[in-house]
Amino acid sequence: MHCQPWLKALVYKCTKSNQACLLCDAPTDQPYPLCTCCELELPWLDEQCRICALPLPMRDLTCGQCRRRRPAFKRVEALWHYGFPVDALITRFKHNRQWPLGRLLSELQGNGLEHRFEQGLPRPDRLLPVPMACGRLRQRGFNQAAMLARWLSAQLRIPCDEQLLQRPRETPAQQVLGAKARQRNLREAFELAHGEPLDGLHLALVDDVMTTGATAQALASLLRQAGARRVDVYCLARTAKPDKA
């Protein structure tokens, strides 16, 4: 059974028609349903670790964790802090099936990535959504990372491969675990679906929120071991450390 929504019918028409801002209901003349005032007040992530995008007090710094042990991924690209109202928008998209909100966030993310590409960020060869275990996929009905990857693929004109990464083992939800427990939880949780060579490829993982980076680290390590030259991470939002939230 195909669990994913019919994106063009349910989302595209809603976000491409003239309508009010999805946050304040004010009229907007922008090409997406967000007024300029609300867009300016989003929790934009400016000061961050230049590797994992962890929010920091200043720009162009590297966080202590990345200095101690460089992650398997090269760089994380995130637009926002995981704070209001972005956290509420992601929750409504992810748990309440309000797909137009996810489409809006994805379009803004795509605009940000296009700007970064123009500044010199290398374009990846392929987008890979973070996989979801079959049981959780049946329960939720869709994989939000796969939806984001499809939208980004169409906007950025970068191929999306939803089959390469798989999560065959059911594990507890990452949200309820601490940092060390998250790492243990993901051991051998992922695998490559087919034996296609990845030698020399630049790949980008797509997800909604990055918290500890355990999922990104596990997947990037798997891809690097399979021959990928570089792995980046594209996510909507990055959380701060628990004591810095």
Results as ranks from 00 to 15, higher is better:
residue 193 A to H: 14
residue 8 K to Y: 13
residue 105 L to H: 09
residue 54 L to M: 11
residue 191 E to N: 06
residue 128 L to N: 11
residue 213 G to P: 03
residue 131 P to G: 08
residue 65 Q to V: 09
residue 36 T to V: 13
residue 197 P to I: 15
residue 115 H to W: 10
residue 43 P to N: 11
residue 129 P to K: 15
residue 189 A to E: 07
residue 115 H to E: 13
residue 67 R to V: 02
residue 45 L to H: 09
residue 143 N to V: 07
residue 236 L to A: 04
residue 173 A to H: 13
residue 60 D to T: 02
residue 220 A to V: 08
residue 88 A to L: 10
residue 62 T to W: 13
residue 210 M to S: 01
residue 232 D to C: 08
residue 136 R to D: 03
residue 167 R to Y: 01
residue 220 A to Q: 09
residue 84 F to E: 12
residue 210 M to F: 04
residue 68 R to Y: 07
residue 85 P to F: 14
residue 235 C to N: 05
residue 161 D to A: 04
residue 26 A to W: 11
residue 120 G to A: 05
residue 243 D to I: 07
residue 40 L to D: 12
residue 142 F to I: 02
residue 215 T to C: 05
residue 29 D to H: 11
residue 136 R to K: 07
residue 209 V to E: 09
residue 176 V to T: 14
residue 114 E to K: 14
residue 28 T to L: 04
residue 18 N to Q: 13
residue 7 L to S: 09
residue 134 C to A: 13
residue 33 P to L: 09
residue 60 D to H: 14
residue 235 C to M: 05
residue 238 R to K: 11
residue 163 Q to G: 00
residue 189 A to D: 09
residue 138 R to I: 03
residue 108 L to P: 00
residue 141 G to Q: 03
residue 49 C to Y: 08
residue 116 R to I: 00
residue 190 F to S: 02
residue 92 R to L: 04
residue 195 G to E: 13
residue 179 A to T: 11
residue 8 K to A: 08
residue 149 A to Q: 08
residue 101 L to E: 11
residue 243 D to V: 09
residue 201 L to P: 02
residue 196 E to F: 01
residue 191 E to P: 00
residue 130 V to Y: 08
residue 100 P to M: 10
residue 68 R to V: 00
residue 152 L to G: 01
residue 14 C to Q: 10
residue 146 A to S: 11
residue 76 V to D: 03
residue 173 A to P: 03
residue 71 P to D: 14
residue 196 E to W: 05
residue 63 C to S: 04
residue 197 P to G: 12
residue 48 Q to R: 15
residue 185 N to C: 06
residue 86 V to D: 06
residue 176 V to A: 12
residue 49 C to W: 06
residue 37 C to R: 15
